[in-house]
Each structure stands twice: as structure tokens, then as C-alpha cells.
């Protein structure tokens, strides 16, 4: 279904939540005209997945919510109900707010840069025919690199002694101290995170571009002489669904999948270094043994992801209609 990028603009829809509700209430829209009628068999087929989902998804998720209302004794001798205290503690803490602010900044910059650079490369690769597959191969190779490996390589590139990027910055009189200076570390983290996620954006935009029918582009060439204007008025609107989808994916990536990267780059000296909210959940939970606080932060993050994903559902729904 690569023609997903061709979905025309939809008229205003009810809110994502309302759409979700409506979907839940609706009778099952049979995906097939004809289905098997066996009362037991579907349950047997679903059983393994349902069992795993119940034990490893719903149980922990429920526990996260419950323990977010309790304060656990540091020595593990019991816990007491504290209501919303864990939430108010987290939200009112200056440190938490600072990390939240950095997380938003980090996510926005990483999402925007990897989308923009991915798009420039995809548009160029779509244009040239010779070598297109070579460029794609090269970029896909980067996609497969694990975040901790990327973090390790990034750390070396920004190493105080041997890092070529630090030496390069020194040429402009910039004394980069990654791991020591807050903003220098932040910049290194952003560079590595963007580097790792450009290929994903590239792959999707390229396939989106190639799904635009040649006839549409030829019509645009006849109607409009300026290539830039053509891109902005014809190609980009047709890519909107892809771009929207990627924006959500990029934000989710920056929020969660960068954990390993940050863990490797910040190592065990988080004191003066930037970090994201997910990293803080981990630090407070496993290092600080503050289960309640960590759980409350988890729940806050769950809400953030929920909102992001509801946006995504809206997008998927749109795609289902036109795909």
C-alpha cells in the first residue's frame, strides 16, 4: 500500500478520541466477505498472543499505574498509599521540569532535522536515476545500526582526545567538552540521534515520492515552470500523510528509542548532563529505587504516548479510507 502518500485531504473529522470510541462501539467490520465460522478455533489461534500480552503488557502496565499512587519504603519493607503525591512531586520538581523542557527541545529538533535532511536526500535520490539504489543501500546500512552502537561510535567521534569532530570544532575556536559541558553533550546527542534516524525518513519519503503517479508530475511540469514551486504546490501536498506519519514516528523515536544512545553517551555521569524523561524514569527506578516516583513518571509518559498514538490512529484511519 505505498499509495498511502496519495491520500487526498480529508474533510474535518471528529476528534481522534471520538473516532476511537466510535470504532470500539461499532460491530466488527468484516475484513473479508466470507469468514470461517468455528467457535473455538479463533480462540486457540489467539491464545498464545493473548497470554503473552496479558502477562507482559497488561499486568506490568496495571502495576505501573497502581504503584504510582504508593510510596515504597526504601528498604522494601512495605508501601503506603500517597494519592497523587508522586505526581505532584514529579511535576513540581525543578529538575523534572528542566528535563521535560530538554526532552521537548530534543524531540522537536531531532524530529525536524531528521525529517528535513531525509527529505532533501530523498527528493534528490528520486530525481536522479543513476545510482539511486546505491544511495539507498548506503543509507539503509545506517538504519540497521543499533542505538547503543551508534552511541559508542558517536562518543568516539566526540571524544576529548581522539574525536575528529572535536578537533574540527577546535578549528573554529570551539572547545567542545562532550560529557562535561551540558550543551556540548546535548549537541553531540542530537547529532548522533539525527544521524541514526535520517535513513528511516529517507526510505519512507522516497517510497512516497515514487508512489506519485508519473502522470501527475507530468501534468505539473506542464502547468508550472518552477521546480521549487512545483515541489511545494504538488509534490509536498501529496506527501503530507507520509510527512505527518514520519513526524509522529520521529517524535516517538526521539522520546524512547534514544534511550540506549543516551545511556552510552552519558554513561554513568548523568549529574551535569542532559537527559530525556525516559532516562529519568530508569534512573529513579533502578538507581534511585524510587519505585513510586518512577511509576508516576511512567504514567505521565504513557499519557504522552497515548496522545501521540491517537494522532497516529487518526492518520491510519484516514489511510484505510483512501488506501
Amino acid at each position: 500500500m505505498t499509495d498511502l502518500s496519495l491520500s487526498p485531504k480529508t474533510p474535518a473529522r471528529p476528534s481522534a478520541l471520538a473516532a476511537l470510541k466510535a470504532r470500539l462501539a461499532a460491530p466488527p467490520a468484516a475484513p473479508k466477505r466470507v469468514q470461517f465460522d468455528r467457535p473455538l478455533m479463533p480462540w486457540l489461534l489467539l491464545a498464545p498472543q493473548l497470554a503473552i500480552v496479558a502477562v507482559f503488557f497488561y499486568w506490568p502496565s496495571a502495576q505501573a499505574i497502581t504503584s504510582s499512587f504508593y510510596l515504597e519504603d526504601p528498604f522494601g519493607l512495605g508501601s503506603s498509599f500517597v494519592g497523587m503525591a508522586n505526581y505532584t512531586d514529579a511535576l513540581s520538581s525543578a529538575e523534572y521540569r528542566k528535563i521535560a523542557a530538554f526532552t521537548v527541545f530534543f524531540a522537536a529538533v531531532v524530529a525536524a532535522l531528521s525529517l528535513a535532511i531525509g527529505m532533501v536526500l530523498a527528493v534528490k535520490a528520486d530525481k536522479v536515476i543513476r545510482g539511486r539504489s546505491a544511495y539507498r543501500t548506503a543509507l539503509i546500512a545506517v538504519y540497521a545500526i543499533a542505538p547503543p552502537v551508534a552511541g559508542l561510535i558517536g562518543m568516539m567521534l566526540f571524544d576529548q582526545h581522539i574525536g575528529p569532530l572535536v578537533r574540527f570544532a577546535a578549528l573554529f575556536g570551539w572547545d567542545m567538552k562532550v560529557g562535561l559541558d551540558y550543551w556540548d553533550t546535548a549537541i553531540a546527542m542530537i547529532v548522533v540521534a539525527v544521524w541514526l534516524h535520517i535513513p528511516y525518513n529517507f526510505i519512507f519519503i522516497l517510497s512516497g515520492l515514487q508512489a506519485i503517479p508519473a502522470a501527475v508530475r507530468e501534468a505539473a511540469v506542464i502547468d508550472c515552470a518552477s521546480p521549487l514551486r512545483r515541489f511545494l504546490t504538488v509534490v509536498l501536498p501529496l506527501l503530507t500523510p507520509t510527512v505527518f506519519f514520519l513526524t509522529i514516528i520521529n517524535l516517538t523515536y526521539a522520546l524512547f528509542d534514544t534511550f540506549a544512545l543516551i545511556d552510552v553517551m552519558v554513561k554513568d555521569k548523568p549529574a551535569n548532563n542532559p537527559m530525556t524523561l525516559v532516562y529519568k524514569v530508569y534512573l529513579d527506578g533502578f538507581r534511585g529505587n524510587d519505585f513510586g516516583g518512577s511509576s508516576a513518571q511512567s504514567v505521565i509518559l504513557m499519557v504522552v504516548v497515548l496522545v501521540l498514538t491517537l494522532f497516529q490512529f487518526r492518520y491510519i484511519e484516514r489511510r484505510v479510507h483512501y488506501g
Binding site: 500480552v53 502477562v55 507482559f56 503488557f57 499486568w59 506490568p60 502496565s61 502495576q63 505501573a64 504503584s67 516517538t252 524512547f256 534511550f259 525516559v278 524514569v281 530508569y282 527506578g285 533502578f286 519505585f291 518512577s294 511509576s295 511512567s298 509518559l301 504513557m302 504516548v305 497515548l306 498514538t309
Partner: peptide, 17 residues
């Protein structure tokens, strides 16, 4: 629904389980 919440946000309770 499992698509809604990545492992990272429920890592602590998952570990306990």
C-alpha cells in the same frame, strides 16, 4: 493497545513481574 505503550515506559513493573 500494546502498540500504544512502548516497553520503555513500563520497564520498572515489567522487571518486577
Amino acid at each position: 493497545t500494546t502498540l500504544l505503550l512502548p516497553l520503555e515506559v513500563r520497564i520498572m513493573p515489567s522487571y518486577q513481574v
